[in-house]
Design a binder for these strands. Sequence first.
DNA 1: ACTTTCGTACGAAGTGCTTCGTTTTCGGCT
DNA 2: AGCCGAAAACGAAGCACTTCGTACGAAAGT
Lengths: 131, 131
Amino acid sequence: MTQTVSQLRPTAAELGILRALWDLGPSTVRQVQEAVSRDEPTGYTTVLKFLQIMHQKGLVERDESSRAHVYRARVTQQDTQRLMTSQLVDRLFDGSRSKLVLAALGDSGAATPEELAAIRAVLNDLERRSS
Amino acid sequence: MTQTVSQLRPTAAELGILRALWDLGPSTVRQVQEAVSRDEPTGYTTVLKFLQIMHQKGLVERDESSRAHVYRARVTQQDTQRLMTSQLVDRLFDGSRSKLVLAALGDSGAATPEELAAIRAVLNDLERRSS
DNA sequence: ACTTTCGTACGAAGTGCTTCGTTTTCGGCT
DNA sequence: AGCCGAAAACGAAGCACTTCGTACGAAAGT
């Protein structure tokens, strides 16, 4: 049953819970439920069930020492971003990351001047590195 | 039953079929099935069923004048790219497109010099536009 | 006209995702 | 010790997605 976490894709609802955990850090079910419900009202046992499933899958770990178990994300936001971005690129952009970038930037109003500067910095870095 | 196509999100299997249609242009079920099966072997009636469902949803249109109906994508690849990219950004990048861009570029080996140049061009364009 | 072939249409089964009601367990309080 | 409130565990229902078997109809060859 052990599975490589790095290849595990969270479902839509699981992603909502991961977002709460990334935001809050280690949390009880109740805390997660309250955070998630701000976005999308969700019952307590629903959230509990997801956390149990995710624990089984290895997406989260939990500390059972207290009466109210404390859950913590076992995948980082960055890794998940990379994974899901890769999958989108594969499925929809013919495997070309830069096509995704162009699409994301192409939509007007996408970025503030500061963000553009940050992107430019990365770009400079990449070009320096490759030469 | 009429629904705005621009908000319609194709499922995983539907996306595979759309990719074939984008690639081939207007095609019969058999042609789509052959193309899709190169990636992922799929039965004829399975593909037919999907095309029927997608027709119902408005994702594709069909010409029934010949015995073998001819299907054609009703959403462009670009629109779908925009839609799904937006959703990824909302769900996983706190609504910031540039975070997605940084993540996509950050992975080394992502882009060739030509691609980087193309991105830089878009960047220049954006900055000129905003000033 | 008859059979074979190829296509559409339909229904339904299998699977995974989502949600929640009910039951059980645990600690604290009296 | 017994009760109460909060939490965990369990089971199942509802829904969407995926897949395919079967039936039926039309065209083409003999």
